[in-house]
């Protein structure tokens, strides 16, 4: 219940934060929803914590030229409630609304969540389906990585030492697009046993565009590329979802075995696609 001692810095500017982080073994604290419980159980005992909570200019949601930018310290609740996200990127708002509980959504940040890269986190499925990008900055670099290249393994991302997530970049959706985030939440933790995010566009009553991201099922979130292709090629939903998880090693725990998880991914994909279809115009 009681964390170990640590040194604490709350830099007032991004540059200062990046300098601090470049200075050695530093743990970045954003919303703290993953880090602080681990510190209380003493599973995590960082010597130096750099709190991004006082860095100005990391909390924003903007849109220009069809691109939505969300600052790293924007909270899940801000994302689920923001008219801009609800209007132009509703899939992300829906995913944000399914994270944890309201208290967690009030503190937890999008940057912190994706940097943590829990294999059962909610955002990654949507970021993949949205073909989003993650902007990473360090004291001397600034680069953008596609979501599909970002999540590498459980708790392992493309973030290099010294880098932090500064913003998430997403395409603004067209009004005609249908979307859905379908999740089976673990009854205790609320984490996604599986979560499937789908985007569907229709042309002449047929699926002309499909993007599907799956979280919780495997070591990291992945895009169901085969299923997308099949859907775009006119296959039935059942045919398409039957390919989901092929080639992936499914996770297994007390609550859901690998076989069951794989099955759930397909069931939830079917449900997500069906709802997305009804929402597409």
């Amino acid at each position: 219940m009681i964390p170990q001692e640590f040194e604490y810095s709350a830099p007032g500017t991004l540059q200062e934060a990046l300098q601090l982080i470049a200075g050695g073994e530093r743990k970045v604290l954003a919303g703290g929803m993953s880090l602080i419980p681990m510190m209380k159980l003493r599973l995590a005992a960082p010597e130096h914590v750099v709190d991004l909570g006082r860095v100005p200019g990391l909390n924003y949601i903007t849109e220009s030229g069809g691109t939505i930018r969300i600052g790293a310290t924007t909270t899940h609740h801000e994302i689920e409630m923001a008219p801009l996200v609800r209007g132009r990127c509703p899939l992300l708002a829906e995913a944000a609304s399914r994270i944890g509980d309201i208290q967690v959504r009030n503190r937890g940040t999008i940057g912190g969540s994706i940097a943590h890269a829990d294999p059962a986190a909610d955002y990654p499925a949507s970021l993949l389906a949205l073909e989003g990008q993650v902007r990473l900055v360090s004291a001397n670099s600034d680069r953008t990585v596609a979501a599909s290249d970002f999540f590498l393994d459980p708790f392992t991302t493309a973030i290099e030492p010294g880098e932090i997530v500064s913003e998430i970049v997403l395409p603004a959706e067209e009004g005609s697009e249908g979307y859905r985030y379908e999740k089976l939440a673990h009854p205790a933790s609320g984490f996604a046993v599986v979560g499937v995010a789908a985007r569907i566009k229709k042309t002449g009553g047929k699926i002309s565009f499909a993007r599907i991201g799956v979280t919780g099922m495997a070591a990291h979130a992945f895009r169901a590329l085969n299923a997308e292709k099949l859907l775009e090629g006119g296959a039935t939903i059942d045919e398409a979802v039957a390919t989901i998880g092929e080639g992936e090693e499914a996770n297994s725990d007390l609550y859901a075995s690998a076989d069951y998880r794989q099955h759930l991914a397909r069931v939830h994909a079917r449900r997500a696609i069906s709802v997305a279809l009804t929402r597409a115009t």
């Binding site: 703290g32 602080i36 419980p37 209380k40 309201i102 208290q103 503190r107």
Partner: peptide, 8 residues
């Protein structure tokens, strides 16, 4: 609303 056990 926040959980005051999960913030310093």
């Amino acid at each position: 609303a926040i959980k005051s056990c999960t913030i310093f």
